[in-house]
Design a protein around this nucleic acid. Structure first.
Lengths: 212, 212
DNA sequence: GCTTATTTGTGAAATAATTTTCAATAAAAA
DNA sequence: TTTTTATTGAAAATTATTTCACAAATAAGC
């Protein structure tokens, strides 16, 4: 795998670039400069050039970057040329919203299965996604070869559910619970903690007055 | 304001510490070491000590940290000793989920007003929060002195709504749209981009096999 | 074809964040 | 009381990331 290890900070920006390239493509632009990209995605142009350079010389001096080939390149890099199935665990409020949202636009990620403890939800279909009882978690993940889960369960069951999911072969977790779950080294967790984000925002407001 | 400017990376971890201190407090623990904290919040213990040290000597050598005084300290720092009102703009799927969630547990942030363009939503109450028509955005933000908004509108109106909100005195934006909105230097934006997070996760899975 | 304007890619410098190390000190044990 | 153990705080080292600044390459205009 791991062609050349790109800095983590760069990796996190790739989807941002990818998204904007799609927009350019859709509006039939065929070239773009790092300066122009910079304004749209709010990342310094030198950082963009540096980020791109980890993948080789993708641009042309005096010209910029060819939108189509850059887009094709990032599509590949980000695995957006294949459909990735993900499972959602916990169909509460937030879970439901995510089911409905389902990452459609510009993304080849799809929630293809969901799980919940509530007996009245099990074996129904919500927003086009089949809901399975929690007891089938491991089996379904295995059978459907799902490697990514979105965790929207109550905090107190988060670790157990995580352990189960990993037993079912999961390799990546988008964790919406405030618990920092423990996972083996080969499993990746991306935390999305809404309360945290708000508190951080408040902190910045009170303590950093100007600038980024 | 700005007592001593703390690194951004540290600031983002403060709510994580705060949250775990609350848990310790609730379970009547009265001391905690950086090592113990480290395991719970998954941050290296040296990083934790370093983070804390920006605020002075909060601990005691050979002993650790006193949970209650540390908690009290962070509560103050994070402004959690007062209630902060926020407005939610865009009561769609995600907006609704957030209204319902309303940041209750352990957080003194409350959504006290919401806005939507849909005429049938205007002047109703959802999950205990009054919904105003979008036309009243600026006025209500001013009147209610709301400094923080949660942006869950469609991307194509995100910039306009943002401009309006800022005209109404907003200083911080939790932005759930994929658009990187433009704001003046004294306004802070915290982006939460779910599609991005998933794509980043997929990238890491495919390209970084072991370790953090 | 020559000249000028653009724009990349990248070394080097600057900045930011993490980690190592260890002296100092508190608490617990002997 | 003395010794041992635990644990912080801070300096220094390391690692990661961003930014500057400019040569090299190309495009566009004349």
């Amino acid at each position: 795998m791991t062609e050349t290890k790109i800095p983590k900070a760069t990796a996190k920006r790739l989807p941002i670039y990818y998204r904007y390239l799609n927009i350019l493509h859709d509006s039939d632009k065929n070239r773009v400069s790092s300066t122009e990209l910079s304004e749209a995605v709010k990342v310094d142009s030198a950082t963009i050039r540096r980020d791109f350079s980890y993948f080789g010389a993708l641009g042309k001096r005096g010209y910029g970057y060819d939108v189509d080939s850059l887009l094709k390149f990032f599509k590949k890099i980000l695995n957006q040329d294949k459909l990735t199935n993900a499972a959602l665990i916990g169909v509460g409020n937030l879970g439901n919203a995510l089911l409905n949202f389902n990452f459609h636009q510009n993304s080849n990620v799809r929630i293809s299965a969901a799980f919940d403890v509530r007996p009245d939800l099990a074996n129904t279909v919500q927003s086009g996604v089949p809901i399975y009882p929690m007891s089938e978690l491991r089996k379904q993940l295995e059978d459907q070869q799902i490697k990514i889960v979105i965790l929207t369960v109550p905090e107190n069951v988060a670790q157990n559910v995580t352990d189960d999911a990993i037993a079912g072969g999961v390799r990546g977790i988008l964790n919406f619970t405030p618990l920092r779950v423990s996972v083996p080294a080969n499993v990746r967790v991306q935390n999305v903690d809404l309360t945290n984000e708000l508190q951080t925002l408040i902190y910045f407001l009170d303590h950093y007055n100007e600038e980024e």
